[in-house]
Amino acid sequence: MRKIRKIEEKFFKIISQLATYSLVAILGYIIFVIFKNGFSSLSWEMVSEIPSGGYYYGGDGGVLNAIIGSLYIALGATLIAIIIGVPAALFINSHLMQRKRSQNTIRYILDALWGIPSIVYGAFGFTLMIYLGLSASLLAGILTVSFLITPIVIRSFDDVLSTIPRGLYEASFSLGSTRTETAVKVLLKQGFSGFITAVLLAFGRGIGDAASVLFTAGYTDNLPGNLDEPAATLPLAIFFQLGSPIPEVRQRAYAAAAILTLIILIISLSSRFVSRKYQKKALKF
């Protein structure tokens, strides 16, 4: 009996170790392939210039248009998602705290929205765009991506808020605070790490998604100067260049992918840093 348990224990340990290490290995391999293929094309020119006329046939220039476009769209959409999502997640956990059924229904809907493929959001955004008389533009892209990532912000923030123990609510209420005060002064602080995770997840999804911006943001070789002008994005830059018959252009696709990966890494590392700093500082009065 004891022997079987020991073998069991060993077996599951090995399985879980294998799963963990292979995950890390796959991630490492993906990054390795991207950087290996993109490295030869990765240059200062690539990140600092917009495409010249002959760029897509191997001419001069870079993907600055797509970098800037992607950052604008992801930042704009994340901002909207925070403005809508944070109060929504707080509301679910404070004002709806005793309405378990409403909570569950809302969570179910949000999970469904999270699971909807982004091409559907793209199509929805496109329909809305036509209805509103907008053309493919930065604004339309931002709005569509914000539809895509708002459920992510709400649900992943809510996930952390929902683990806050009942006793903490009771402590706050017993000092005479209202639900709103409890939400803003206690839940937001207690769930701050969840907030950061939510924002990162949403930003990553937003900046990396191609299908939602395909019809709505359009594509241009210029930098977006205005909300009603079209904007290029990195996923689409990768997509277009990867389809090229010219090997040099395909390599640039990998370079663009490397840039996208780097942006996500930088954003996630720096916001973790900021959140840690903030949490220490928030304790001061």
Partner: peptide
């Protein structure tokens, strides 16, 4: 809230608010 303020609550486990000791004391 005014009714609840008439009573101090002490539960099984301490639940300090996620702020400094000082801010816990000034919350009310």
């Amino acid at each position: 809230p005014e009714i609840r303020r008439k009573m101090g609550l002490l539960s099984q486990k301490p639940y300090p608010l996620p702020v400094s000791i000082y801010k816990n004391m000034t919350y009310g």
